[in-house]
């Protein structure tokens, strides 16, 4: 019995985050890793882009688009 409990504990400690009674955080929802910002260069025109590892066809793919703003520039 004790051996079996220890085996279970080892697997849990290695693979599961500690369960705590009090947790916090901001209200909001996670939308995945395939969100990204696109800079359109000096013209700052927003557009679509490809990100390695993210599907370009999935309907779940999210792209950020911002309104053109002449004062913006992007690190290249």
């Amino acid at each position: 019995m004790k051996e079996s409990i220890l085996k279970q504990i080892k697997a849990t400690v290695l693979n599961r985050k500690e369960s705590k009674t009090i947790i916090g955080g901001y209200d909001g929802s996670f939308t995945g890793n395939c969100s990204f910002i696109i800079c359109g260069g000096f013209q700052n025109t927003a557009g679509l882009a490809y990100k390695p590892g993210c599907s370009t066809t999935s309907s779940g793919r999210r792209l950020y688009v911002y309104k053109p703003n002449p004062s913006l520039y992007c690190w290249q």
Partner: peptide
């Protein structure tokens, strides 16, 4: 997690976003 939804709405709707914010994201 919480930033993404709000940021998405901000990027779509706002008239002006500080350059620093866009550059850091990029």
């Amino acid at each position: 997690p919480a930033y993404q939804e709000a940021l998405n709405d901000i990027l779509i709707n706002f008239d002006w976003i500080p350059t620093e914010l866009i550059n850091s994201l990029y």
